[in-house]
Amino acid sequence: MIIMQGKPFEKILEMIKDVDKVFITGCSLCATSCMAGGEQQIMEMKERLEKEGKEVTGFVVLEASCNRLQVRSALKKKKEELGKAQAVLCMACGDGAQTVAGVLEDIPVYPANDTLFIGEVERIGHFSEMCRACGECELGWTAGICPVTRCAKGLLNGPCGGSRDGKCEVDRENECAWVLIYERLKKMGRLENIKEIKAPKDYSRAYNPRKIVVGCRKEG
C-alpha cells in the first residue's frame, strides 16, 4: 500500500491562501487506510477550512484516485460543485493527486498529503516501509526480507559495521535487516544464499518515469 500523511494544516492554508472556494477529493483505498483521505478526514478538513473562512463547494471520496477512467467518470458527476470551485484539495497520494489534476486540467489541484512510501499496515495507524519498487525483486534469496528497503543502506552483500545487537546504526529503533535475513536463512538451512557475491543492482530498471503494458514485458 502507498503510505501517506497529511501535511500540517498551516502548510495547506499557505498553499491555498488565494483560494476562497475549494472542492475536496479523497480516495477509498490507501488514503482511507492511512486515515489521510477517507470520508471522515474529508469532513474534518471541510470543517477546519470553513472555520478559516473558506467555502467548500463539495467533496467526493474517489473509489481509486489513481485510476484515470474512474476519476474521470466520478468527477463528471460533480461538475456543478467543481464549477464553483477555484481549486481542488486532493486528499490522496501524489499519484492520486496527479490523476485528478490530469483529469481536471484547468483547475489547480493542491496536495493535502505527503506521500511517503510503499509499506505494510502493521496494525491500525502503524505503517512501515517494505518496498522501494527497485524493479527486480530480490526477496527470493533473502528469506522474504527486503535488503533494498529495510537495510538503511540498501546493502546486498551483508551487514555494515554499524549493526549492533541486531539493531541498525541509522535508527536504533529499527532491526538490522541483515541480521534478520541471516537469522531467518539460518533457521531454514539456507545460509548459502548469502555466500555468493551480489553484483550492484541494475538501476536502469528503475529509471523513472517507468511505464508498463501488461503482456509486453521488456526483457533485459
Binding site: K153, L155, N157, G158, C160, G162, V170, K198, K201, Y203
Partner: peptide, 24 residues
C-alpha cells in the same frame, strides 16, 4: 568501505548513494 550514513554527518540533508557496498 560501505561508509557511514549521512545522518551522522554535518550535512544531514544529503542524498545517500550506497549504490555499491564495500564488496562491490
Amino acid at each position: 568501505l560501505t561508509g557511514d550514513h549521512p545522518v551522522f554527518g554535518d550535512n544531514r540533508q544529503a542524498k545517500p548513494v550506497f549504490e555499491l557496498d564495500s564488496v562491490n
